[in-house]
Every structure is written in C-alpha cells, then in structure tokens.
C-alpha cells in the first residue's frame, strides 16, 4: 500500500480512508447491513460528484453531512414502518470475538441488561449512544451525522445514559448511590 500521496486524487486522499467510519455510521442509522452498504455507496457517488467543490478541510465532517442527506433522501422513498426491524438489532450488537476482548473489563450481566435497555430507548436517544459510545464518534462528528448541534448531541447523550443507568438501578446491577 505504498501509494505516493502526491499522485493520489483528492477523492482517494480524503474519501477512501473514511469508508469504514461511513459504514459504521450507516449501520447505526439504518440498522440493516444491506441498506447501510447501499447508503455508503450513495454517499461515495455524491462525494465523487462534489469533490471539486470540497476545500480539503475536515473530510469526515463533509462526508458525514453527505451521508446524512443521502439517508434523508432514501427514507423519503420508503415507508417508515419498513425502516426498522427490531429483530435485526441483536445481530448488529453481536460481540466481537477475539483475544483482545478478554482484556477489557466487561460485566456480562450488566451488558445483557444494557442491550435490552438500549433497545427500549426512543430512536434519537439510541442513536446518539450508538454513534458516540459504541462507534466512538466525537460529539462533533455525531452532530454532523445527525444534523443537530453538538450541544444537542451532548444533552441527548447524557439523558440517554441517565435512562440506561436508571434501568440498571432497577435491576440492581448498578450500585445505588442514594442509600
């Protein structure tokens, strides 16, 4: 992969390295693997068409905005009730297997309850958790992907975590600090 950067087109330089992030975000938005792939393909075509007008700064933010618009367009063409199949959630939340997983501190019981609690959150709250806490986007990147101000990302995120936390409280999996 020793490609001379000076011979790369702007598209290769700015867009290709972001494909994985785009796919992560697309999966969070669509909750469906095939739709996510289509959405990223759409995004790549739009980015390719618009690359001449892109100033080279913050490619990820630029691409996330394109992806969001592409997604809005796609949703307009579909019936909303077809968009989300709750049965797909569990597949998507599947845990990675691998040796590095054993190093991380993971509380399995808490984790199972958390997955259930996450699915019960209203979509805007579930989405910010998915983008920031699961996919690892920054507040600013999540804001681009959702088309909302970073402050709104933050407040939604904090409320969402509070709800997850209360759910764990109810099941006795989180220490009750009030006692």
């Amino acid at each position: 992969m020793n490609v001379d950067a000076s011979r790369q087109t702007p598209f290769e330089q700015h867009v290709l390295p972001e494909i994985e992030v785009l796919l992560r975000v697309a999966r969070a938005l669509t909750r469906n693997d095939a739709d996510a792939e289509d959405l990223v393909q759409d995004t790549l075509i739009r980015a390719h068409n618009g690359i001449e007008h892109f100033d080279g700064r913050h490619p990820r933010a630029w691409l996330l905005t394109i992806l969001r618009n592409a997604n809005i367009n796609r949703n307009r063409r579909r019936r909303p009730e077809l968009l989300r199949d709750p049965d797909l959630t569990f597949d998507r939340m599947g845990r990675a297997a691998g040796p590095e997983q054993t190093d991380a501190f993971v509380d399995l019981e808490l984790d199972a309850e958390l997955v259930r609690a996450l699915d019960r959150l209203a979509e805007p709250f579930r989405l910010v958790i998915d983008l920031v806490d699961i996919q690892g986007l920054s507040y600013a990147e999540a804001a681009q992907a959702l088309g909302i101000p970073p402050g709104t990302v933050m407040s939604r995120l904090h409320r969402a975590r509070g709800r997850l936390r209360r759910r764990l409280d109810q099941t006795g999996l989180a220490p009750r600090s009030g006692k």
Binding site: F11, L16, I19, Q41, R161, L168
Partner: peptide, 29 residues
C-alpha cells in the same frame, strides 16, 4: 462501567461489505 460495556460492542463492520465499498471507491477514483 456503562461506557465500557457499550464500547465493547464496537465491532468492525462486515468485511465483505467493507471490501465491496473499497473496491467501489477505487473504481470511482
């Protein structure tokens, strides 16, 4: 603990999807 548990779900996207999209991107380029 909640953050750690959520972060543990950060799995790589399906490799076949990713590969197709990278090929598609290269083709476009």
């Amino acid at each position: 603990r909640i953050k750690a548990a959520l972060a543990s779900h950060r799995v790589p996207p399906p490799s076949d999807s990713l590969e197709r999209l990278r090929d598609f991107g290269l083709e476009l380029a």
